[in-house]
Every structure is written in structure tokens, then in C-alpha cells.
Design a protein around this nucleic acid. Structure first.
Length: 242
DNA sequence: TTACCAATAT
DNA sequence: TATATTGGTA
């Protein structure tokens, strides 16, 4: 196993989400230059590049949509026209500013589900989930709100699977398709619906990647090594559990 | 004091 | 409807 260490690690490394998959979460439609030009602060630049005056409290993210594919139907006039009525002009303290409503894209939700799955139901609380997701600009409240809804969804699924009968009998689930669209986009791990038994598979490395700046590579690698140690421990536990 | 969580508000 | 905010509680 010793010699394999470097092997499995690089192999594991290869399976990390591609930048294309990772980027979308914190990528905006505005280029860095444009952002600077318009004095728009990015959520995922924890490290203020080079600019004058950047107050410590991270300003609200414009939006953390995930335009992995350039939206063909993109209205380019979608930027938040920050100045409204001239009230909150300029350098006003970032706090007390309202963040734009978070949109739970399928990608974001996928990350959410993965985090919950790897944490196990019992440990899946907003703060932990948020940390595991490591999406810049994502707040605990964001996650809490989503989690609340997701739990209701899971409960409904359980109720459906165990009890009873579909009323009309025609299509599969009688529940409104519209309600489930987002949640249906990501598969629900089986053990979510079977409480009572400790989760059996919660280990494969859930990419602990936090950001994508080069400066963070060190931290990322540190996190990765940490995850590696944890993996090792998890594996030894696995033998016992199984 | 923090964070969870269900209810409620927008 | 989807997400945010609130308020009681552990």
C-alpha cells in the first residue's frame, strides 16, 4: 500500500471535478476587468486583487449563477444596477446590504446533495453543509432554507415509497412535477430514505476544494492531504462496518 | 452566545 | 413558488 499512496492520490486527483465543473459556481458573467471598471466586487475573490479601498466584510455576491455554458438567451442587461434612488451610494458598509436572492441551480443543488450525502443525515446541518460545499458567498441561511425544503421533499418521498397508493394511478408520482423539478435533477442517495441504519457509504473524497485561485493551491493541497488522512481512517472503519 | 429549525413573510 | 427572515429553543 505504501507505494500505491502516490498512485491513488494522483488518480484521485484526476477525478476531481474539472475546472469547467467547478468554475460555474462562482463564476459570473462579468469579466474581472469589467468588474473592476464598474467597481463590482466578486464573491470568489477572497483576495482583493488590486484595487483601492476594499472593506473587510465581504460584499454581497452579485449572483453565483452557474453559466457553465454561455447562456444563449442571455440578456446582457442583467447586471444589477447597483445605484437605486441614490440611497446606498458607493462605499456604504457592505453589511445591511441585501444580497440578491440565491438561485439554486441544479449544479448548486448537486453540490448540496453531495455534501449532505457525505455528511450523513445526522451531521447534515446548515453550517456543516455550507462548509463542505465551499461555495463562495453561500451563507448558512441560504443552506438552512434550502435544507428545510429538501427535508420536506425527502419526507414526501419516504411517505410515497412506504405507504400508499397513487391516486389516479396513471403516472408515477402524483406529486406536482413542478415542485420536484430541482430536486429531481439530483439523485437522492438511497440511505436518505432509509433512516435507522447508519449510512454505509460516505467516503469517497468529496472534493474539499474551496476556491480556484492559485494562491489557494497550498491550502487546497493541505485540505486534500487532510482528506486523504480522513479517507484512510474511513476505509479502516469501513472494514469494521461492513 | 451560537446555531438549528419550524413557521412565517416577501 | 422559491427563497429569506424570524423567533423559539437546545
Amino acid at each position: 500500500m505504501r507505494e500505491d499512496d502516490s498512485n491513488w492520490f494522483s488518480k484521485w486527483e484526476e477525478e476531481l471535478p474539472s475546472p469547467e465543473e467547478l468554475m460555474p459556481l462562482s463564476q459570473t458573467l462579468i469579466t474581472a476587468d469589467l468588474a473592476i471598471a464598474f467597481d463590482i466586487r466578486y464573491p470568489n475573490s477572497p483576495q482583493t486583487p488590486h484595487h483601492h479601498q476594499q472593506p473587510p466584510p465581504p460584499p454581497p455576491p452579485p449572483h453565483l449563477q452557474t453559466p457553465s455554458t454561455q447562456p444563449t438567451t442571455n440578456n446582457s442587461s442583467e447586471f444589477d444596477s447597483a445605484e437605486m434612488g441614490g440611497a446606498g451610494s458607493g462605499d456604504e458598509p457592505a453589511r445591511t446590504l441585501k444580497r440578491p436572492r440565491l438561485v439554486w441551480t441544479p449544479q448548486l443543488h448537486k453540490r448540496f446533495v453531495d455534501a449532505v450525502a457525505h455528511l450523513g443525515i445526522k451531521n447534515a446541518v446548515p453550517k456543516t453543509i455550507m462548509q463542505l460545499m465551499s461555495v463562495d458567498g453561500l451563507t448558512r441561511e441560504n443552506v438552512a432554507s434550502h435544507l428545510q425544503k429538501y427535508r420536506l421533499y425527502l419526507k414526501r418521498m419516504q411517505g410515497l415509497s412506504s405507504g400508499g397508493g397513487g391516486s389516479g394511478g396513471g403516472l408515477s408520482s402524483a406529486s406536482d412535477p413542478a415542485t420536484d423539478h430541482l430536486f429531481a435533477s439530483s439523485p437522492v442517495p438511497a440511505h436518505f430514505l432509509h433512516p435507522g441504519r447508519p449510512n454505509s457509504d460516505h467516503f469517497l473524497p468529496f472534493v474539499p476544494v474551496a476556491a480556484l485561485q492559485q494562491q489557494h493551491h497550498q491550502q487546497q493541497m493541505a485540505a486534500a492531504r487532510h482528506a486523504a488522512g480522513w479517507l484512510h481512517h474511513a476505509l479502516s472503519t469501513f472494514v469494521v462496518v461492513v
